[in-house]
Every structure is written in C-alpha cells, then in structure tokens.
Design a protein around this nucleic acid. Structure first.
Length: 839
DNA sequence: TGGGGATTT
C-alpha cells in the first residue's frame, strides 16, 4: 500500500497512540473527518502523519498538511517526524513558518503554523495541494484554528477526496465531532503520572497563599515547583516574599526564577538551564502551553489569569484578571507529573473549581474581528453570520469589526454606498459619522481598493492602512518600519535587575513627541551598527544595549516581507527621507479612533466615544503631554492605557477622517465688513473636538438661513455699503415714511420689517447669500427688471395711514416774514415731544 | 500613572 514510500514505517512501542494505530487508520480510511483526542505524551502529534503516510496519503501529488499553533512547535514536530522516518528535514518531511520555508517538491508531510495554511487559502481556495490536513491542538481554539475549522467544513463537499484529522486534548472532543456531522472520535490515553490535587483556599492575600503552598511542597519531597500567576506584578510580589522565606532545613533551600513572555532572553534561558538547587519558577500563562519548564514535580495554581477581551461597546481591548476555566486549571495541573507523581495545590476551594466554566472562551468570541472579516470578505465567503464557525462570534462583535473596517476605508457597506455623494459638496463634507452599518441579514460588505490591498498585507488591518497611506504620502519606507515594529514583540529588553540601565540605553533613541519616531531612530542605529560590526560583535552590542537580537531580526525580516508585498501591490518605496509630518499623517490613517485630547484638569485624555485614557508610563510622551495624541494601542488594565503614542495636529484627522467627522455650526451672523453670513464651525471625530471654533462662510453650509440673514441685515436693515440705486432710493422712501410717523404722532404707519423682508424674499434670487452673490445676480437681473427691488411709498406705509400726507405737517412755520423750521418728534415724556420751533 | 499569550501569500 505504500509502494512509493522509500522507507519502512515503525512506531515507538511505548507511545499510547501506537496501540490504536489500526483503529485510527481504519477511521481515516472510512471517514472524511476523524477526531483524535489524547493528552500530551500520547504521541498523536508525531505518529498521525506516519499513519496517514502508511495509508498512502501524502503521495501522488497530494501533501499531508499538519498545522501547529506555534512556530517553534512546527519546527520541532517536523524535526521529530523526519528523525523517526530517518530522512533529512526539508525532503520528505518539511516545515514552513513565517520567513522560513523548509519544504520541497519531494515533501509529503508539511508541518506549518495554522497561519501559513490560512495564507495559502488566498491563492489555493480548495487547498488542492493537500490530500490530508491534520489540525493539531484544535482545543486551543485560537482565531486561526476556528477559522480553519469553519473553512474546512464548507470545503469538504467540494473536496470529497480530502481527509481531515482534528486532534484535541481529551476535553470536549464531542464539540468537534458535532461540528463535522458526528465524525468518529478516537480517544488515546496520555502518558502521565498521577497528580494529587490539594485545595488550599486563600485565607490571607495571594502572596501569603503562595509562600504557604511552597513551604508545604518543600516538605513533600524533592523536585521543582511551578507557580502560575496572572502577571508580572504578581510575580514580582511573590518573588520578593519567597526570597525572604528562610527555609528551616538546608535541603529546603531554593532559588526563585521568573518566567513571562516579555522577559529578556537571558532570563528566560535560565529556566531551561541545568541546575543543582531546587527551584521555584513563577510563571504567567506562557508556561501553560507555549513553554515547557523541565523537571517540574509540583504546581501551585492561583487560578487566575489575564484574559484578553474585546469590548464591542467601547471598542477597546481589555485585559482583566479572571478566574481560569476548569480546562485551563487542568492544563496547569498537567505541567507536573510528566516524569513522576506530582502534587498540584490550587489556591481556591474545590467548590470554586466545580463552579467554574468548563472551557476558556475561544478567541473568536473575545477578540476584535476586523482582520477575520477582512480576510473572509476577500475570499468571497459572503455573510459572516452564515459561515460555519464552531462557535459563531457575537453579532455586535461582527458589527464592531465591520465598523473598524469602515473607519479605515477597507469596506463600504451597501447603505453607505447608496448614501455617498460627490466629494467637495457641503453635503459630503457634513458626513454624519453614522456608526451602525448593516444588519445581520445583509452583512455583505464590499471591499474597496484599500481593502483589497489590506487583505494582502500580513499585518493587522490598522497597520496595513498606515502602509497604504505611507505610499500616498511618499514615506512608505518609514511607515513599513514602524508598522513592522508594531506587529512584533518589543525588541527592547528591560531585565528586572537592570531596569534603570535599560531605560537609559533606550532613552538615547527616544523622541519626546513621538514613540514612533523613537522606533525609527532605533532602526537607524541598528542598521548602522550592523553595517560596521561583525555579526558576533553586533550580537554583543544588542546585549549591552538591552536589545533582543532575535526580535531585531524578526523586525528586519518583517520589514523585508512588507516591502516585498507592497511592491507586488504597486506601492512604491521612497528613496529620499520623508518628513516626520508625512509619516505621522500616514500612521493616523490607521488610528483615527485612537486619538485623544488632553484634559488638563484630570491629567488624562478624552478619547473616542467618550472614553478616557492615560499615556503609559513607558512612553516618551508620559512626562510632557501634548494637547492631542494618537495611540497605536489602547488596552484597558488597571485603567485604559495608550502605550505607543505621538503628538498630532488635530487638523490632520479632519482630512484623513473626512468620512467620519461630524460638523456642527453655531451663531450664524451677518458680518458687515465681509458682506457675508459667517458662523462658527465645530468639527468632532468620535466626539473629540478636533476644531473648536472656526469661522466659516455659512452660505456654503445652509443656503436658506444665510439668504434669510443676508436679506434681513443687508437689505432690510441696510447694514451694507453699496452703490446700488434701488438701495438708496428705498432708504429715502423709508425715511419719508418715518418722518410721517413723527409728524402725525402715530406709530405703525411704516410697515414692519417682516413686510420688507417678504418683499425682498419674493424677488431676490434663490442663491443670493452674500453681497457678492447679490451683485452678480443683480447684474443680470436688472437688465430685464430694473425696478424689481424699488419700494413705493404705498408699500412702506400701512393701509390705515393712507389718509395722511406729509403736506398736512409743514416743515416751516411762517410768521410774518420769518420762516422758522419745525421739528417733529413723537416721544411722549421727553422734552422734545411734539412740534418744536427752532428760533 | 506599569500589560496574558500566540500568529500571518
């Protein structure tokens, strides 16, 4: 059956999976999808590809694809399979992770990260390259795994020849089985020594609980202790307390080590180095799946972890400390007992454990979905609501993802497309910043040109958006460097013992107005040193300058990758150095909802949608906080923090966010000097005032109101200096009527302003909103109707005053030869009231 | 005024 296989396949007898290999082979032969459930040590990861090979799969043009959640795992799994098959890595067995492809045309088993498989979907929609796909560690339920499980589900009918094997820890294999129409489940036992669980509910604080537990375990026998905590601070507190602990016996002496992802590589390596003394390792979740600490006999579990959650309401990522699930607690427990019996002390009550949720929420229900939606839309997968997810994300999260994609101009919803108007018109500029987009029923957004480009860029959509804008602003080189830095882990190290020295070393690159500029400075320094130094001297420099060499390499690799993809997208690199403003304007294109306005009183920032955030203390902007900032990352921990920031000019956001800004106008008023109606414009972006009181020509905003005010003030009230004949003639007519009022000692003879307004309103052209508009309109109009705007005395005098005439009230009192002027005034109570003869 | 962990043609 394996005629084309060059070697004999054998299975290590001691592995539990070996006993079930015939059942597994049979199941794969008879079913399209098989679930293999088994704990660590069952051998499923390495033996399943061999079973598939023996079934004749991975041959004659097809490849066995095998996905891993992490890069390191992809490499080591491939190495082990290759070794067991007695072949060289990269031939029959290969692997591919980002930046490294060690597979070839001969490769029958290709181990890769799940992200690589997803990326391949873009150009091989039916995954024709594979005849078998093994999805390992599916219980981890990462975003990638859930997307693959959904994608494969809808692919199966189109690829009846494709076999899929899902592997999972023994927790809940039924869920996967149900997702794949009751696919058979084969359970394989693990190879674990028994672990005794002791519940020690906290009576004091956590640090006390940890020291008590450690003391208890020290007396239980030899072996290292692994403590799970929620974060760096808790680790520091516990380490301090444990170092103060004085063991009563010499044999109880131990050293304390920390382990978390941001630890410097030297500090991390200590954990894996051989050692004599007993150890207590204080770790975050990094030790739950990613790193295996060797030689652990005992586990202390605080039962807590920081879990990332995305709030669809506030649109920010949160990192609350939460009680972990049963599955996670059991995974922690399983970290001891790999070499001998173990003990796991849980710092909570058994009833507490029993009441906890079975599983940790899968990432897809906890994360920002913009990237997934973008990829799905690019793949033409249609309605997200109908995609066969194992566990569909919440509608509100999907909406939030769509909203973000709209913010960065990646998609246009059907509604927005219908509403859009030609640019440059007042209506267009008055974009309403509407937030709701599409209902679940017609949630099929359309990709814009930008969106199609973003789908090709292997970075977060916000970062991709910066890159696209960088091309437009002639600073692609710089923006790619920044975007690359933002998508990897910070290459700057801050070892716990030398924080001040590390900060000082890093401060050399800091720019007080921009952390992004600081990254560019660091990049320049690294490039220069690399040019001048030998490879080993450069590594030494990294160490003394508190830089993580591997992450620097990762940064540079990602930079090259992004340059290459950009080139394919037709985005061109610039040779000449770009201005800081061009770079920051480009970055802002991806961070429109991450801007903030300084609140001087509260020493923090007003952010989008009424949120408030503070500058993270590690930022170069923490000391002198500028009036407006943008933040690359907003994460809520003890409070909402902006981690990587730069000062911005708020006006930049007005043009880049033209599709989102709201404009409101106040105090429209006539300005005599300008001969126009002006008003104050306020521009807000997500509720942040980016322009507070800008005087604008209101005629372009609201024609009706501006015309009304023009007529009232310029024409009716005469607040205008002009030579138009009708204007002066009308004023004389009015003056005559007013004189009549004085002489007749009656008010109400002259018509009120409303009548005059109506007169002009009926006659003046509809577009006349200022003196300039009037002049050009009247220039045409008066040729045909020169008298159009002239008042008659009849118009300005009330009907009831018709019987009166100015002649009845003479201007002069004649007495003999003398002619004395008469002055009329109607002002009861005043001395001048009545007729006054001037002698 | 101090943040869990992965991953990408």
């Amino acid at each position: 059956m394996s005629a084309t296989l060059p070697m004999q396949i054998s299975y290590p007898e001691q592995l539990p999976v070996t006993q079930r290999r015939h059942d597994i082979a049979e199941a794969i032969r008879d079913h399209q999808v098989v679930i293999v459930a088994g704990e660590t040590g069952s051998g499923k990861t390495t033996q399943l590809p061999k079973i598939c090979l023996e079934l004749g799969r991975g041959q004659e043009g097809g490849v066995i694809g095998h996905t891993q959640p992490r890069r390191i795992a992809a490499r080591t799994v491939a190495e082990r399979i290759a070794a067991e098959l007695g072949t060289e890595l990269g031939q029959l067995v290969g692997y591919q992770v980002r930046f490294t492809d060690r597979s070839s045309a001969q490769t029958m088993v290709k181990v890769m990260t799940d992200g690589i498989l997803l990326a391949e979907v873009q150009r091989d929609r039916d995954l024709r390259r594979y005849d078998t796909i093994i999805i390992d560690e599916a219980h981890e339920r990462s975003l990638n795994i859930d997307f693959i499980l959904g994608y494969v589900k809808q692919l199966l009918p189109r690829r009846p020849d494709l076999k899929v094997v899902i592997t999972s820890a023994t927790i809940d294999p039924r869920r996967f089985s149900a997702h794949f129409d009751d696919a058979p489940v084969i359970e394989v036992s693990g190879r674990m020594y028994p672990v005794e669980v002791r519940y020690r509910e906290l009576t004091d604080d956590q640090t006390q609980g940890i020291t008590d537990a450690v003391r208890e375990l020290l007396t239980a026998g030899p072996g290292d202790i692994l403590v799970f905590l929620s974060g760096e601070r808790e680790i520091r507190d516990a380490a301090d307390a444990l170092r103060r602990l004085r063991p009563t016996r010499v044999s109880d002496a131990f050293e304390v080590l920390s382990l978390y992802a941001r630890l410097s590589s030297a500090e991390q390596h200590r954990v894996f180095a051989p050692h004599q003394r007993r150890r207590v390792v204080l770790a975050t979740n990094v030790a739950e799946t990613s790193l295996t600490v060797p030689g652990i006999r005992y586990v202390v579990d605080t039962g807590l972890a920081r879990i990332s959650r995305f709030s669809a309401r506030t649109k920010v990522q949160r990192l609350p400390i939460e009680p972990i699930s049963k599955a996670s607690a059991d995974q922690r427990k399983g970290r001891c007992g790999r070499q001998a019996d173990g003990i796991c002390i849980r710092l909570y009550a058994e009833e507490d454990f029993d009441a906890r949720p079975e599983f940790t929420d899968p990432e897809i229900v906890r994360t920002n979905l913009a990237s997934v939606i973008l990829q799905m839309t690019a793949l033409g997968l249609g309605d997200i609501g109908r995609f066969p997810f194992v566990e569909p994300p919440d509608t509100r999260s999907v909406q939030a993802g769509i909203q973000l994609l709209e913010e960065i101009g990646a998609i246009t919803s059907a509604r927005r497309a219908r509403r859009s108007k030609p640019r440059g018109r007042a209506e267009t500029r008055m974009a309403d910043g509407r937030t709701a987009v599409s209902s679940g029923k017609n949630a099929t957004p359309a990709l814009t040109t930008i969106g199609r480009q973003l789908a090709q860029l292997p970075v977060d959509p916000r970062l991709g958006r910066m890159i696209v804008e960088g091309h437009r602003n002639g600073c692609l080189r710089e923006v790619i460097i920044v975007a690359a830095a933002l998508s990897i882990q910070d290459p700057r190290e801050r070892p716990s013992e030398q924080q001040d020295a590390a900060d000082a070393a890093h401060r050399r690159f800091a720019d007080p107005t921009s952390d992004f500029a600081g990254l560019l400075n660091l990049w320049g320094f690294v490039k220069e040193q690399q040019k001048e130094l030998s490879s080993s001297a450069f590594r030494r420099l990294c160490k003394t300058d508190f830089l993580n060499y591997l992450r620097i390499r990762e940064w540079q690799d990602l930079d090259s990758q992004l340059r290459q993809v950009s080139k394919q997208l037709g985005l061109s690199l610039t040779k000449t150095p770009a201005s800081a403003e061009a770079v920051h304007r480009s970055l802002l294109a991806g961070l429109l909802s991450h801007i903030g306005m300084k609140d001087v009183d509260k020493r923090d920032y007003l952010g989008a949608r009424g949120s408030r955030f503070a500058i993270f203390p590690g930022s170069a902007l923490a000391k002198k906080q500028p009036p407006f900032v943008m933040s690359a990352e907003l994460v809520e921990t003890s409070r909402l923090w902006g981690r990587v920031n730069a000062a911005i000019e708020p006006e930049w956001a007005e043009s880049i966010g033209a599709h989102l800004v709201k404009r409101t106008y106040s105090e429209p008023h006539w300005e005599y000097k300008r001969g126009a109606v002006m008003a104050f414009e306020k521009v807000t972006l997500y509720g942040i005032p980016i322009v507070s009181e800008r005087k604008v020509d209101y005629g372009r905003i609201d024609r009706a109101v501006a015309r009304d005010l023009f007529i009232r003030h310029a024409l009716v009230q005469g607040e205008w200096r002009t030579h138009h004949r009708f204007f002066h003639a009308n004023q004389e007519v009015l003056a005559e009527a007013e004189e009549l009022e004085q002489r007749a000692r009656r008010r109400g003879i002259v018509v009120d302003d409303e009548t005059l307004f109506d007169f002009y309103d009926e006659r003046v052209g509809p577009d006349v909103v200022s003196t300039a508009h009037f002049d050009s309109w009247w220039k045409q109009q008066r040729r045909t109707t020169p008298q159009l705007l002239e008042f008659s005395l009849d118009l300005v005098v009330q009907d009831a005053a018709d019987d009166l005439s100015v002649q009845e009230f003479p201007d002069v009192w004649r007495h003999g030869d003398a002619a004395m002027p008469l002055v009329y005034e109607f002002d009861p109570g005043a001395e001048s009231d009545g007729v006054t003869v001037e002698i």
